[in-house]
Design a protein around this nucleic acid. Structure first.
Lengths: 333, 333
DNA sequence: TTGTATGCGTTATCAG
DNA sequence: CTGATAACGCATACAA
């Protein structure tokens, strides 16, 4: 493919056709899998394309096929390391099935719709929404403009197609673990409390605590999934003297660990700490954070499946279980 | 814009024109800044567009204008938190000037050209390359297919348009700081040693050491910009008994800090530690890492400028100075 | 300023 | 299986 120095203007199918004496449609067919063309002619055309450096113009083909092979990925928070990791693997998975990713980075605050206009005008085939916040279902549907929208790691109040970690199972696993290591004075540091995911996690957590007769001695809110919010949340809980704290996400937990250690609290002897997500940093020896690992690969696999499916009739809400990763922040060893 | 429930098929300019009794070209002109149309007619058309939910189809307009308003962003490593932070701000800045970002996440290893074909077929206006590795200039030029390619935070061996942090100034600032705090047995942990950025940083560092009569007691290589590589690099240097170590990037330095602390080394009393980039984590109280801050906003500003410029004649290589951020890992306080 | 007509590069329909 | 021809939705040269 690199045999030729790139000319300023790329070759068109018609030009290539003229060059080797076939019709323009033949060239098009050569590049269309499953089209009716003899393997001999196809080979000749593909050979010539290779030689002359011809590649079909994807933009032009969008005109007739009405498909862009582009997925719009809507994000709003790349500060939390969980998201870049998710996005990286998602875009790679999409590329493997022939899709490209147009990244829509929505800034919180003003003029959200204005930022979303591009999603409609660029005619992406599918919109995958990773942003936990900012967009309500209605805005989302508008932005999708009739195209398929899939929620990834985010819950809908309507019945939009959704792929999400099973937050209930995750929160319960953490409680059960706290119970197993004999902690009974439990604290909770929330992330974005108003989001569906946040509420689900917190609800399941407190419910399971009650089932096991454990005591929620304190609960700290926070405005964001950030290190600083976790730090502050941990400090706010100290007065309640918990012997274990569950942070709604790893990035919060890392902040919490920092605050607790700075306050002279021994982890896990005095307070056991658990997070949620299993971001890479949670596994660093310096953090060694017990956490509920999100099934990222399976989440992505499902999202891709939904992207490719002709219809999404059943299983519009896919909840996938993760796995509790027990590390030093809760286990004495 | 949300006045209408999104119809399955979006309106075309011709349909809108028919609806309000003007020509299709009038509709097109209403949406084209600077086109010859009376403000009265434009207002009427934009009003109707708003009412009926019409938005120009960006794909179709690409056919005639030959411009996609899409920038291809080539990345290969989102594990190093510096990159997501850069990408987030870059895509937002691009959006503000009316460009969308198509993310090309190149997996190291096989079939790189195959992964790059999409860049050509999608006709992006500009390619911004953030990936430090993987692609040589020739492959890059091929992938760009005659379009503009800009290197961001990466150096070229040819004269491709480049915006990069001034690594020489950065490395020198670190050495000067080590000198100022009276350290003379210096260690260095390299990142990807084979990259131009890596070589520049290392070269400037050792040169400045020599100028100030300081001693490079040891130097550790590493295969990647990762926490683990930094951890190992720090361990490798211990035998040489350095009193200060410069890590080629923050993520390496964080690993190094972990390893040193685990080994009982006091920071900064025994060994002062400095990184490069100033990722968010460097500023966390738990890390408190002295580092050379990359001028991210200015880098992006310049990259946007180059993206929008008609020609890039002079200033094809823009080197921007950063700022040494002194924190607890080198300063006793 | 406005409308009419043409073309962008491809896919899809229709004959042969 | 192959070639000619008609869209796709918009921007622009041209005519009015």
């Amino acid at each position: 493919m690199m045999s030729d120095e790139s000319p300023a203007r790329p070759l068109t199918s018609r030009e290539l056709a003229a060059l080797i004496g076939v019709s323009q449609s033949a060239v098009s067919r050569a590049f269309t899998p499953g089209s009716s063309i003899s393997s001999k002619l196809r080979a000749r055309i593909l050979g010539a394309a290779h030689e002359y450096g011809y590649q079909p113009n994807a933009i032009a083909s969008m005109m007739t096929t009405k498909r862009t092979k582009i997925v719009g990925i809507v994000v709003s928070d790349m500060r939390n390391p969980f998201y870049p990791a998710l996005i990286e693997r998602l875009t790679q998975a999409l590329q493997r099935v022939g899709f490209q990713s147009l990244l829509f980075n929505i800034s919180p605050g003003a003029r959200i719709e204005e930022q979303l206009v591009a999603i409609r005008t660029y005619n992406v085939d599918t919109v995958i929404v990773i942003s936990a916040t900012i967009l309500d279902d209605r805005t989302l549907n508008w932005a999708a403009g009739g195209r398929r929208a899939i929620l990834l790691n985010r819950l809908s109040h309507q019945d939009m197609p959704t792929v999400c970690c099973d937050n209930v199972a995750g929160a319960r696993a953490v409680v059960d673990h706290f119970h197993a290591i004999d902690r009974h004075r439990i604290g909770y540091v929330a992330g974005l409390a108003k989001t569906a995911v946040g509420m689900t996690r917190q609800g399941a957590f407190t419910t399971r605590l009650a089932e096991l007769g454990m005591r929620l001695v304190g609960s700290a809110g926070s405005e964001a999934y950030t290190f600083e919010a976790g730090w502050q949340g941990a400090l706010d809980l100290l007065a309640a003297r918990p012997d274990a704290i569950f942070f709604a996400s790893d990035i919060l937990a890392l902040g919490g660990l920092g605050a607790l250690r700075a306050a002279g609290v021994r982890i896990p002897e005095d307070i056991a700490v658990a997070g949620f997500d299993d971001i890479v940093m949670a596994g660093w020896p310096t953090n060694d954070l017990t956490t509920y690992r999100q099934p990222v690969d399976q989440l992505i696999e499902k999202a891709i499946e939904m992207t490719l499916a002709a219809e999404i009739d059943e299983d519009r809400l896919v909840l996938l279980p993760g796995e509790l990763i027990i590390r030093g922040s809760t286990s004495g060893d």
